[in-house]
Design a protein around this nucleic acid. Structure first.
Length: 271
DNA sequence: ATGGTGGGCCACCCA
């Protein structure tokens, strides 16, 4: 059964529900993972999702900041929300689908919003950066302990780290910029190894090619200057990775009206 | 080297 899954840092789901609707009508995803929904669960536009055929909603929101959700046409068997770093932040939600057809084992989807980490890449003077590093450590430990990637599983989200040289517009210039510092890259690598996970986006775009999912609001000519970063990721467990048949980064969404600074990433799973 | 632009929400927090 083919499943199309999208992940997108929406930067306020209430403000950008028209863009989500456009994504749905134009690209027809079955499952949508959002980050930075920025509203409480009671304020989440659930009726809009249901009108659009997404009857199954797993929401972990909070007032004003952060917030993640998984909206789905397919029913869930389980929903889980995990707190990281004891901050009370809404930065994770996961679902397991009901058992697949033809006796296939159900897929789990984990949706993460990793802390951005502030501007100063020194954990001794910047608590936001320290939080980001601790979050990545805890993610790796939990991946190891839980064994989530041992079965059919997907991990997606805004991980706020661009690990490869070609995940940023200028590697040398970015080495001291939060999101591309060696310590973040190393820690994200440990999270991937702890699964172990497969970086499915890079199965479709070779590491020699630049690949971005985010362009800052602060650049008036984002497209011409193209100073992007790959902050959003789609990982598959080794068992599921061969079933990922397609991937696209919807760069055009950065040019939509009142856009998010992140664009959706879509994958096709043939499970 | 600096500041540039957004969103939430009402004084600044966050990205």
């Amino acid at each position: 059964m083919p499943i199309k899954l999208a992940t997108w840092n929406i930067n306020s789901v209430r403000l950008r529900m028209p863009l989500v609707e456009h994504l749905i009508t134009q690209f027809k995803p079955d499952v949508i993972c959002l980050q930075e929904t920025k509203c409480r669960d009671a304020e989440f536009p659930s009726s809009d999702f249901k009108r659009l055929g997404f009857h199954h909603l797993a929401i972990n929101g909070q007032k004003g900041y952060h917030g993640v959700c998984i909206a789905s046409k397919l029913p869930f068997a389980h929903i889980e929300k995990r707190g990281f770093c004891d901050m009370g932040d809404a930065r994770h939600i996961s679902v397991t689908f009901e058992a697949g057809t033809a006796g296939r084992t159900p897929i789990s989807v984990h949706n993460f919003y990793v802390p951005a980490g502030g501007d100063e890449p020194d954990p001794t003077i910047n608590p936001k950066f320290a939080h980001k590093l601790a979050f990545l450590d805890e993610m790796a430990q939990w991946m190891k302990d839980s064994g989530v990637a041992q079965d059919h599983a997907i991990a997606v989200g805004d991980l706020n780290v661009a690990p490869l040289d070609t995940d940023v517009w200028n590697h040398k210039q970015m080495l001291k910029i939060v999101s591309h510092t060696p310590i973040e890259t190393e820690k994200l690598g440990r999270v991937i190894a702890a699964g172990p996970w497969v970086d499915t986006m890079r199965n479709f775009v070779p590491p020699s090619d630049k690949l971005f999912t985010w362009w800052s609001y602060r650049s008036p000519n984002w497209e011409a200057s193209d100073r992007g970063r790959r902050l959003d990721h789609v990982w598959a467990s080794e068992k599921l990775a061969p079933s990922v048949r397609g991937m696209s980064v919807l760069k055009e969404a950065r040019g939509w009206e009142r856009p998010s600074d992140h664009v959706p990433v879509l994958i096709d799973i043939d499970h």
